[in-house]
């Protein structure tokens, strides 16, 4: 089963590498990974999609918690959550196909962000299965290039508080 794990890490040198090193060292697999800033200056949020049975995911979460630079680790898989992914998809176009692609793009509420005589770049945002569906319908036209952001996710409802600054007394 796929699991979406949200990790708050210290936003400093090497934190990302520690998480990645742990995954590779322990032989855990990563389906997607994303990292970015949060509302707190010195904390970043990583969202990792991984796969495994309950015992393995339990280990993944524990091993993540064990890292000194991780502040909070939550397996969002069983929680109400919002998951989003962004994809940039560059497809071939021809006179005949352009209208059809534009329609498909509208269905997925995508944006056309670049266009040339021979290709069009579409931006699709949404839950990962929506992005998958968009990719599937665009594939027959010939996808020249694609970039997917990996999933970012947040738990629905009230946010859990994080201590803002490291206390040194």
């Amino acid at each position: 089963m796929k699991h979406t794990i949200s990790i708050l890490v210290e936003n400093h040198f090497g934190s990302f590498d520690r998480v990645a090193t742990m995954f590779s060292g322990k032989g855990f697999n990563i389906r997607s990974i994303s990292i970015g800033e949060t509302e707190i200056e010195d904390i970043s949020r990583m969202t990792i999609v991984t796969q495994g049975d309950a015992q393995l995911i339990d280990q993944v979460v524990k091993q993540l918690n064990r890292l000194i630079d991780t502040i909070k680790v939550v397996d969002l898989s069983h929680a109400p959550r919002v998951e989003r992914e962004l994809a940039l998809i560059k497809v071939n176009i021809s006179k005949g196909s352009m209208e059809e692609i534009k329609n498909l793009c509208d269905i997925f509420r995508g944006n056309i962000v670049d266009i040339t005589n021979r290709s069009m770049t579409i931006e699709v945002t949404g839950p990962p299965d929506k992005v998958d569906a968009a990719v599937n319908v665009l594939a027959p036209f010939g996808i020249k290039e694609m970039a997917r952001s990996g999933i970012v996710a947040l738990q629905r409802g009230e946010q859990t508080k994080i201590k803002k600054k490291q206390n040194i007394t």
Partner: peptide
């Protein structure tokens, strides 16, 4: 010299 140390991730 920091007498105490508090690491929020540990």
């Amino acid at each position: 010299y920091p007498e105490d140390v508090d690491l929020r991730g540990y």
